[in-house]
C-alpha cells in the first residue's frame, strides 16, 4: 500500500511541480522581479517622473530559477504524498479514484492549501508589510487544516451535522482573522501586488488540477496492476 502511494505521489507530484514551475516562471516570476525593483529601491512609487509600468527585468537566472524549479517539484511531491494518502484512504473505504475524479480532488486541495488561506492572507509580493512570520505560519497551517477537514466533511459527510460543521470550519479562520501588520509600509504599487496574488492563485489552481488528475490516474493504474 505504501509503495503504491509513494509511486503515484512521486510521479504525479513531480510532473505537477514541473508544470507549476513553468507557469510560475512564465507568469509569476516577472511580477515578482518587477516588485523587487521597488523593494530594492531601484524604482519608487509616486516618483517624478512616474516609474515606467514596463521596466526592463532580469532574464532567466540558471541558479535562482533552477532552485525554483527544484523546490516547486519538491513541494508538489509533498502535496502529492498528502493527496494520494487521502485518496488511498478514501479508496479503501469504497470511493472510486480515477483521473476524472482526481481533478475534483486536486481542486479541493487547491481550495484547502492556496485559496482558503489566500482569502485572509493573500499571496505576498516581495516588499509588502506583513505581521510576524511565526504567527502567519501558525494561522496558515490552522486554516489549511480546518479547510481540508471541512472539504472532507462536505465530500463524504452525510447530513446537516457534518455539513454544518464544515461551514463553521470554513468560516472560523476568517472570523478569527489572519495576523496583519500594524502599519502599511510596503513600497510596491498595489497594481503589482494584486497581479501577483491573482497570478499565484491561477498557477496554483492549474498545478493542483494537474496534480489531482495525475494522482488519480497513477493511483488507478497502480491499483489495476497490483
Amino acid at each position: 500500500m505504501f509503495q503504491k502511494i509513494l509511486t503515484s505521489a512521486l510521479f504525479a507530484g513531480f510532473c505537477a511541480g514541473l508544470i507549476a514551475a513553468a507557469l510560475q516562471l512564465a507568469f509569476v516570476q516577472p511580477v515578482l522581479l518587477h516588485a523587487e525593483l521597488y523593494e530594492g529601491g531601484e524604482l519608487a512609487h509616486f516618483a517624478t517622473p512616474p516609474a515606467s509600468a514596463d521596466p526592463e527585468l532580469p532574464g532567466f537566472d540558471p541558479v535562482r530559477d533552477g532552485l525554483s524549479i527544484l523546490f516547486s517539484a519538491l513541494i508538489y511531491v509533498g502535496y502529492g504524498m498528502i493527496l494520494v494518502a487521502c485518496m488511498a484512504f478514501a479508496a479503501m473505504r469504497g470511493a472510486q479514484i480515477d483521473a476524472r475524479r482526481g481533478i475534483v480532488w486536486g481542486i479541493a486541495g487547491f481550495v484547502a492549501v492556496h485559496f482558503a488561506p489566500a482569502v485572509s492572507l493573500p499571496p505576498e509580493v516581495p516588499g509588502v508589510a506583513a505581521a510576524d512570520i511565526g504567527a502567519r505560519q501558525i494561522w496558515w497551517w490552522g486554516t489549511v487544516a480546518a479547510s481540508a477537514t471541512a472539504l472532507a466533511l462536505i465530500g463524504f459527510g452525510k447530513g446537516w451535522p457534518a455539513w454544518g460543521a464544515a461551514i463553521l470550519l470554513l468560516l472560523a479562520p476568517h472570523v478569527i482573522g489572519a495576523p496583519h501588520p500594524d502599519a502599511f509600509a510596503g513600497p510596491v504599487p498595489p497594481e503589482i501586488a494584486a497581479l501577483f496574488a491573482a497570478r499565484a492563485l491561477g498557477t496554483g489552481l492549474a498545478a493542483w488540477a494537474v496534480l489531482g488528475l495525475l494522482a488519480g490516474y497513477f493511483w488507478q493504474r497502480e491499483s489495476a496492476s497490483a
Binding site: L32, S72, Y79, P117, V125, P126, G204
Partner: peptide, 28 residues
Amino acid sequence: IVTLAGHVQAAALHDAAHDVRHATGFPC
C-alpha cells in the same frame, strides 16, 4: 516535505526556496 521546503526559516533554505514560497502563497 512541505514544512521543509515551504516554511522552515533557515537562511539557506529560505533563500533557495524564496521565489517558490512567494509564488505558492506561503508566508515568507
